[in-house]
Amino acid sequence: MTRTLWLGLLLVALIAAPLAIYPVLLMSILCFVIFASSFNLLLGYAGLLCFGHAMFFGTAAYVAGYLLKTYGVSVEVALIAGTLLSAAMGYVVGIISVRRSGIQFAMITLAISQFVYFLLLQAEFTGGEDGMQRIPRSTLFGIFDVSDHMAFYYVTLTVAVLAVAFFYRVVHSPFGEILRAIRDNEPRVESLGFRPERYKILAMTLSAGLAGLAGALKAMVFQFATLTDVSWPISAEVILMTLLGGLGTLTGPMLGAGIVILMNDELAQFGEWALIAQGVILLLVIIFFRRGVVGELSALWRRLRPSPDQNQDRG
């Protein structure tokens, strides 16, 4: 009951937010909330550490941008195309990598993402080093004009709410239960008659699709797509967001996304120092708040007020 109330309040706050805060900053946070959730689905719920998650994000950004620039498709078509393409990519990467686990899986995904980076650098349509500029925000459903920041914010908000709802559904589904079991003890799941690799491939597909949605949306928010979007720093940033917010918690990585984007925004004026500050913060989190912000808070909450419905945010 109180949860519904909190969600309602949060939604009202999000609807009113662009009156007080620059919409592009908000939209950027929302894109990364989707991206971080997609990463959380893999690492937090399937135990798969992907070091190349940016490949799904960045490729979808280019594809959406290309469709918008060249064919003038409407907003939702560009989003769906980016999502589907990345999901297909995730499926293929899954087939290649999912038999390995731990650091081997991480290294294979990193290698594939470097390969994708190289392909996009060479490809004609991406604009190479210069990136893809002036991506138009076309109409929504072919009729509504959403080109100004305020209108596009509400498009972004709607997409983010749907994406988070989808993420919630997946982790609280029959499939999600098997996925968490695989994360906890893969050989045991196999001994119970399942083929774990199939579940992991599906998890990769769904996660990559969400990452693609985030990337396609981002291309429209900033109206450009560059090689940065497919690069290792973006892959690393989503890891930072997840650890900072709380691995394996439902909301932690989303909060982590917000914190990191706001921090980058604040620190941008200090140039190189921003990177150092990020490093220091990550270090502090790893040393002192191993469970991340949400993880530590809910642990504290449980200690202060033990109740039967504890662990709400777990699982």
Binding site: R169, V170, H172, S173, P174, E177, I178, Y199, L206
Partner: peptide, 15 residues
């Protein structure tokens, strides 16, 4: 129990 229940790939269904 899900092993023989045939719904274990349903990522769209609620629990």
């Amino acid at each position: 129990l899900q092993s023989n229940h045939g719904k274990s790939f349903r990522f769209w269904s609620p629990l």
